[in-house]
């Protein structure tokens, strides 16, 4: 098909260019479907739950009467579980990341650990729940407690923390290490004095993203056997008499925000569903705030660090 005239060629080019414009529009449409869904979800929760978003909602226990029910035990439970998760996942994840980047020889053992971490990141969260049910609840005898839930979520976000640590460490130029070694520093001195301080921002970003994921996880905690109706608080970690600190709360039964939302959502009464919407809005707001903080941190680090 030989094109004879310039007019025909121009028409062909115009036709092909039209496809560029059409695809550009389709692309923006697809993006807006995704983002609009998110906006709808956020607004829908706010509208459904707006009437319930009052100070008493945070200071009341769950109740059989929807109008009096609150999320006191849920948000306190969430904070306690998150404390355990952070206390376990951060040191373990950072240590593992440091080992893999700075210490690990390149042998089969390291290879196994690396493949294993990327594989763990793809394991469905409910499988972690089954692990916790079999191992922590029954074999270790921790029961259905704050400690079990915290440990389960810690294992779940461990790959996120390890990967973030590794990426933050990898961004540090080799010259920094060489300079430290040239002054006679040992490996740990290099890590402690240089690698860790310079990668703190990146590690923090990863930790926040991991915690934002853990805070919304429902399935593994249900599998562990969290109760859905808790009208009391775990024992306080601070005591009036010496030794002032108590760890009884670790073994206490608990509930968390996502479980409370699940419980309210599955009731047919719309009044309870309004409670679910209000609690859901708070939960989405919390994860958004955490993710936003992480994105902002990442942006700041990128801007401030000039090696």
């Amino acid at each position: 098909m030989a094109l004879q005239t310039a007019a025909e060629i121009r028409a062909l080019i115009a036709r092909h260019k039209r496809w560029d414009v059409i695809f550009g529009v389709i692309g923006i449409l697809c993006l807006s479907i995704g983002l609009l869904t998110f906006a709808t979800l956020f607004v829908d929760m706010l509208i459904d739950g707006y009437a319930r978003l009052r100070p008493e909602f945070f200071t009341e226990f769950p109740s059989r009467r929807a109008g009096q029910a609150g999320i006191l035990s849920a948000w306190i439970g969430t904070i306690m579980v998150m404390l355990v998760t952070a206390a376990v996942a951060v040191p373990l994840g950072v240590a593992a990341g440091i080992y893999l980047e700075e210490y690990a020889p390149s042998n089969w053992m390291t290879h196994v650990i690396e493949i294993n971490i990327s594989n763990l990141a793809g394991v469905p969260s409910i499988v972690y729940g089954l692990l916790a049910l079999g191992l922590f609840v029954y074999q270790f005898g921790l029961g259905q407690s704050v400690a079990t839930a915290g440990l389960t979520l810690a294992l779940l976000i461990l790959p996120v923390v390890i990967v973030a640590t590794r990426e933050a460490i990898r961004a540090i130029p080799g010259a920094i290490r060489e300079a430290a070694y040239a002054l006679g520093a040992t490996k740990w001195q290099v890590v402690q004095g240089h690698i860790l301080p310079y990668s703190t921002g990146g590690i923090l970003t990863g930790v926040i993203i991991g915690m934002a994921r853990a805070i919304g996880e429902t399935a593994p905690i249900i599998t562990v056997g969290a109760l859905t109706f808790i009208a009391f608080l775990p024992p306080s970690p601070i005591k009036a008499e010496p030794p002032f600190i108590s760890f009884e709360w670790l073994m206490s039964p608990f509930t968390v925000m996502p479980i409370q939302i699940f419980n309210w959502t599955s009731r047919p009464d719309p009044a309870f569903q309004a409670n679910a919407a209000a609690a859901g809005f708070i939960l989405v707001f919390m994860t958004l705030a955490m993710n936003g903080l992480a994105i902002w941190l990442r942006y700041r680090i990128r801007r401030n660090i000039k090696w």
């Binding site: 983002l35 429902t218 959502t265 569903q273 859901g280 989405v284």
Partner: peptide, 24 residues
């Protein structure tokens, strides 16, 4: 600007998506 916003979409707790699917 869009990529972080998409990341937020995958950061929403799944229980909240469940509520959205059932009641919206």
């Amino acid at each position: 600007t869009v990529k972080p916003m998409l990341e937020l979409l995958s950061g929403v707790p799944t229980i909240v998506y469940g509520y959205f699917a059932l009641l919206f």
